[in-house]
Simulated scan of single mutants.
Amino acid sequence: MTIDLDAQLSAADPAIRLRAVGALHRLAERIEVAAVDAARADGWSWEQIGDALGVSRQSVHTKYGK
């Protein structure tokens, strides 16, 4: 499925733009999960991951340290 994100983000209908923003948020979350998992598998500490994401060690550990 190909989505023309530029067209959706510049659409006249706010509902279309808001759905596009929601889709971007969901995509960013999936990418972040994969990146955190890969970093942990490579031996990165929670502090290193937090620094890379611009958040505290505690917040990233709370979110992903299951």
Rank of each mutant, 00 (worst) to 15 (best):
A41E: 08
G54C: 13
R17L: 00
V33Q: 07
S45M: 03
S10R: 04
D42M: 05
V21C: 11
A38T: 15
E47L: 09
A35R: 12
A11F: 06
V55L: 05
I16R: 02
L24Y: 08
L27K: 10
L18E: 09
D51A: 04
V60D: 06
R19T: 04
V33H: 08
A35D: 05
R57L: 06
S56D: 00
Y64D: 11
W46R: 06
D42P: 01
V36P: 04
V60I: 15
R57W: 06
L18M: 06
Y64W: 14
H61L: 11
R17N: 04
V60P: 12
D51V: 03
A11H: 14
K63E: 03
D13R: 09
G43L: 02
V21S: 11
G22R: 14
T62M: 12
S59K: 15
S59R: 15
S56I: 02
I31L: 11
D42N: 14
D13I: 03
D37S: 15
E47M: 06
P14K: 10
I16V: 07
A39C: 04
V21Q: 13
G22D: 11
V36H: 08
L27E: 14
A35S: 06
A23N: 03
P14D: 12
A23W: 01
A34Q: 01
A39T: 01
P14G: 07
G43Y: 04
A52Y: 11
W46C: 01
A52T: 12
A20T: 05
G50W: 10
Q58M: 13
E29Y: 14
V21G: 10
D37L: 15
I16F: 01
S59T: 15
A28Q: 08
V33T: 05
T62S: 15
G50M: 08
Q58S: 15
V36W: 07
E29N: 14
A11W: 08
W44K: 14
G22V: 08
T62R: 15
I16C: 02
Q48T: 14
S56P: 08
D51N: 02
W46N: 05
L27N: 11
W46H: 01
V60L: 06
L27T: 13
H25W: 08
A38D: 15
Y64M: 09
L27I: 13
L18R: 12
R40S: 09
L27G: 10
D51K: 09
V36S: 05
L27Q: 13
R19W: 03
R40H: 14
L18W: 09
I31G: 04
